[in-house]
């Protein structure tokens, strides 16, 4: 994470390395350090205007920009996929402003910025995963006053969070929260894991990689240091459960992974495929074949088609 970079080395003239000025990066790094020191605690920071609308990952981009060094390899995913608009444009943004290497391979990346998924492949020590967070406050929809939610966190008064889960069970017969499922970090703070599916919650527990969360509009940064206990909230008689899928991935036959439903036509045709596109591609190239995998025509094979 080098801080001093001469302007000449930057690929795009007129920008500092990784877009943000060094003072801003230092401010954000201080917030990140504090967040790591107090796992799960939301640290306020002076979020900057970024050249993208709020809701497109302005928080995550600022965190990434602040930790990115010249030798880092960046991967950006949106809902698990490397090739959706948001992921492509953020990847290009850092290619242009920081000229860092980018990749779609989870294993190669040192920094992974994500919107709403944790890669299927187990992250290792030395990697950093940066989450884009729209609403960092898990108590927000129950208690609209920021002054009050801060007090509730300070005093660890979290009964309210269980009221929400109670309401779920009362209305639906089970805990119907399927994403942004609240977790308790290191036995202290209740945290919103950002809108990741609850399927990914167990991956956060004792993860070897550093997890950073950035909320640009709400101006909050929080973190889970490596190997930190992360527990999903539940009731004794309604324990936390992740989603399960009936069939394996239709393209790579993977089981025990998170699947996206893809509508095929207007007659009810659908398929379920890995949401983690890199994971799915690697399995296919290793020879795994799902039930609906077709052989692509020669004209469509190759890398340039979905760039």
């Amino acid at each position: 994470m080098s801080t001093h970079v001469s302007a000449a080395a930057s690929p795009e003239a007129g920008y500092n390395f990784a877009y943000l000025d060094e003072q801003t990066k230092r401010m954000i790094r201080r917030a990140i350090l504090k967040a790591i020191a107090i796992p799960g605690y939301q640290v306020p920071f002076a979020s900057r205007e970024m050249p993208m609308p709020y809701g497109w990952g302005t928080g995550g981009v600022q965190v990434t920009a602040s930790i990115l060094g010249r030798d880092d390899v960046l991967k950006v995913i949106d809902q698990g996929s490397d090739d959706t608009t948001n992921a492509v444009s953020i990847r290009k943004f850092f290619e242009r402003t920081a000229s860092v290497r980018t990749t779609t391979h989870t294993r190669e990346a040192t920094v992974i910025q994500t919107r709403h998924r944790i890669p299927e492949e187990t992250l290792r020590e030395g990697q950093v995963i940066v989450y884009q967070v729209p609403i960092p406050e898990p108590l927000r929809f129950l208690e609209p006053r920021e002054t009050e939610t801060r007090k509730l966190h300070a005093l660890a008064e979290y009964g309210l969070m269980h009221v929400k889960l109670y309401e779920d069970i009362a209305r639906h017969g089970h805990i119907a929260t399927t994403y942004a499922y609240p977790v308790e970090v290191a036995g202290r703070y209740i945290m919103d894991p950002s809108p990741t599916p609850k399927f990914d919650n167990p991956k956060m527990h004792l993860m070897a990689a550093l997890q950073l969360f950035g909320a640009g509009r709400e101006k909050r940064i929080y973190a889970i240091p490596p190997y930190t206990e992360v527990r999903s909230l539940d009731f004794e008689d309604h324990p936390f459960r992740i989603q399960t899928f009936k069939d394996p991935c239709a393209l790579c036959a993977a089981t025990g992974v998170y699947l996206d439903e893809v509508i095929m036509d207007d007659r009810g045709g659908r398929m379920f495929v890995c949401s983690d596109s890199d994971f799915c591609e690697e399995r296919r190239s290793a020879g795994h074949r799902g039930s609906m995998l077709a052989d692509a025509p020669a004209a469509l094979t190759g890398d340039s088609t979905h760039a």
Partner: peptide
């Protein structure tokens, strides 16, 4: 729940 009850039933 505020004083720690965690059994829905």
């Amino acid at each position: 729940m505020a004083v720690g009850a965690r059994h829905y039933g």
